[in-house]
Each structure stands twice: as structure tokens, then as C-alpha cells.
Write a protein that binds this DNA or RNA. Structure first.
Lengths: 198, 198
DNA sequence: GCCTTAATGAAACTGGAGTTCCGTTATGAC
DNA sequence: GTCATAACGGAACTCCAGTTTCATTAAGGC
């Protein structure tokens, strides 16, 4: 139990990095439902016993991958205009979701999160970090009086992403740049109207 | 191949109904990733060979279940006010997603859709039907000049649901009535601002 | 009501995901 | 450098989801 915590040095860390990279590759190629831990072990050039012992299940492996992903932060923009900032955010999300590798990876981890509570918690932490990273855009817009005081910054950021994920996972409509632009514009319009006041 | 098309009468239809009901029950209890076709067969009091022969895989079974679900339509409201209609729609979706049975079922079929292309097509058809069912609310609002001419009705309906599904699947935040109300209000504000003009 | 055969179902079979066992490697405290 | 043991890895094993086989049931055309 809790393998890799007493001697986390050299080999253990190297194996974790190799396995997480291999897991991401496998998720991109086959998706979460066809994730084979023996295949991941082969790709990482590691014994499959090691993968089963340290991560237990496919969902456990994805949960760890998500914690690793949460640590790599991507910086937000700061254009001085809420509409421009949210548009940049929407375009970033749009490009991520339509990128062959990133898009497939995100779909896979979202599936994992709906199947396993630890993966779900890791996914929620991941998005909490991303949302918190972009929230200052809205807070600054409040101070510039672009949107009403008391506007829930996190809720505005969520509102930008929501239509893109809805198309990706639910309706199957294309996640194109026009959709991103509309999502950002809608969030700005609603925020200005005071919809997101706490 | 294509079993049940030459003699679709009595027994074949009865078995389909029993298996789909059993599949829904199993999906609610265990989720898509732990859906066992032998278990479904047992619940439906049907041979597991039959389930494997007619539906092949768990995803194929879900695809058929979704086609069955798409046929059962739920009527929209018509209050004479876009804000009220969209609010009713948001509350309907909110109640559906938080209902123990319906919520679990929807999560399961969404997962299935991200794992299998036939299930994905069935899910997209299902939502296309639901969205088309509610689009007249927006079209009538256009005629009442509540929102600008050329407003994309389907896109407004999608905008209402998107934040609810985003919370359910991505951020993990609660899908509560307040969120539903905000989602409807945001869609109205954005539509009035002309964001959804084609 | 009769007959052809579509469709079902019980039982035996198979393959591979996940586990167990135990010898080997290399971490990190001294 | 030395040593105790944390962590790894190959091989054999287990178990069950999914397949195959073939006898039984009943749909639907006449």
C-alpha cells in the first residue's frame, strides 16, 4: 500500500514519468475504455506487475495522470478587456479540444472521471486550478466597472467553456472557432446583465 | 447479422423491451464501464447468447437504448415568455440530471457515446430531437420581438443546458436550481444582446 | 393447422485482463 | 563503501467476459 512514498528517488520517479507518458499515449490512441495496463507497461518498458501494484486500476492511473496535468499551468492572457480575455480563453479551450492529441486525452480523462471517484476528484481539482487561473480576468473587469460588482468570476469562466464541452460530449456539433467566439460573447453579455452576481 | 429484422413479432419485440429495461437498470446501478451483458441477460430473464448475438457489445446495447429513449418525447412548455420557457427547460434538465435514476442513466449513456461511434450517433440524434422540441420557444420569441431576428433557436436551447452538463461532467460543482435559473437567465441575456444571430 | 427456418438458450470452450509468487535490483540511511 | 529493505519484474496462475456449438422454441407464410 502507498508504494513509492518511502523511496521516491531516482527509479521510482523515472518509472512514474515513463508510465504517465505511456498512459497518455495509450489514452490518446485507444481511449479510456480500452486502456490496457499491460500495454501501458510495455510502452513504458516497465513490468506490468509494477503498474498494477502502484496504480491498481486504469482509473487510478488516470487520477495520477490528472494530478500531474494539474501541476503544469498554462498562463492566462491580460489584454485589459474582458471580451478579449474571455475570447482568448475560449479559443484556447477550442484549440485544445480539437487538437487530435489533447482532445482525445481530455475526452478520455473525462470518461475516467465519470467511472471512478478518485479520477473525478482529480479532474475537478484540475479544472478548479484552471478556472482559478483565469478568474482574475473577471475580477479586474469588475474593478474596471465592465461588469457589476459581486460578479462571480469563476462562474463566468465556467460559462465560457461550458458550450464547448457541451458540443464535444453531448450534442456532437463541431467545436469550431465561431462557437468559441459566441461562447465568450455570451458570457460577457450575461455578466454585463448581472446574471452572475453572487 | 441484423438479427430480429425478419421476424420482429412477438418474442423478438418482447425480448428487446425486457433487455432494454434491464440494461437501463444495470446502467443506473453500475455505470457503463461495469455493464455486464450476462448480468443484463439475467435481469431480463433471457439467454446471454441472445444479448451478445443481437447487440454484440455494451456500446451497441446502449446505442439501441438511446434510439428507444429518443422516441419517447417530453413536451415543452409555452408560457408566452422566453425567460419563463427557458427557465422551465433549465429546471427540467436540472431535475433530470440530479434525479438518482435519470442522472445516473444519462451519465452512463454519455460515457458510452464517448467510447463508441454508434452510441455517439444515437446520443447526438437523441439531443437533436430534444433541442428541436424546444426550439419553437425561441422562434416564437423572435416573432414577439423579444430577441433579434435571425437568432439561432437551437443554439439558445443548447446554451441553456451547457452549464448544467459542464457542472455534471467537468467541474463537479453542484447542479442545483440556482444554477438552472442562472443558465436560463444567461441564455436570455445573450440572445437579447444578439450573440446567437446566425 | 402445417411447415420452414428465424430466433432463442443451455453448456462447453477460449483468451486475456488482473493476481500471486518469489527472485533481482537499486535506494538511501549509516 | 556497506547493508537492510523498498521497489521492480518475469513467470505461472486464476477467473470471468465473450464465443462457439447445437438442440429447442415459436414466428409467420401458406
Amino acid at each position: 500500500m502507498t508504494v513509492g512514498t518511502i523511496r521516491p528517488g531516482g527509479r521510482t520517479a523515472r518509472i512514474r514519468a515513463a508510465v504517465l507518458r505511456a498512459a497518455a499515449d495509450a489514452l490518446v490512441e485507444h481511449g479510456f475504455d480500452r486502456l490496457d495496463l499491460a500495454d501501458v507497461a510495455r510502452r513504458a518498458e516497465v513490468g506490468k506487475t509494477t503498474v498494477y501494484r502502484r496504480w491498481g486500476t486504469a482509473a487510478g492511473l488516470v487520477a495520477d495522470l490528472l494530478e500531474d496535468m494539474a501541476e503544469q499551468s498554462s498562463p492566462r492572457t491580460d489584454t485589459g478587456s474582458l471580451a478579449e480575455d474571455l475570447r482568448a480563453n475560449a479559443e484556447l479551450v477550442q484549440r485544445t479540444l480539437t487538437d487530435p492529441r489533447q482532445g482525445a486525452l481530455f475526452r478520455a480523462v473525462i470518461v475516467a472521471a465519470t467511472c471512478d471517484s478518485r479520477a473525478a476528484e482529480a479532474l475537478h481539482r484540475f479544472y478548479a486550478v484552471r478556472i482559478a487561473e483565469w478568474a482574475p480576468c473577471v475580477e479586474q473587469a469588475v474593478q474596471r466597472e465592465e461588469v457589476p460588482p459581486g460578479t462571480d468570476a469563476a462562474e463566468v469562466i465556467r460559462a465560457v467553456s461550458a458550450p464547448l464541452y457541451y458540443r464535444l460530449l453531448i450534442s456532437g456539433d463541431p467545436v469550431d472557432p465561431a462557437t468559441a467566439e459566441r461562447a465568450a460573447a455570451a458570457a460577457v453579455a450575461a455578466a454585463r446583465a448581472g446574471v452572475y452576481i453572487r
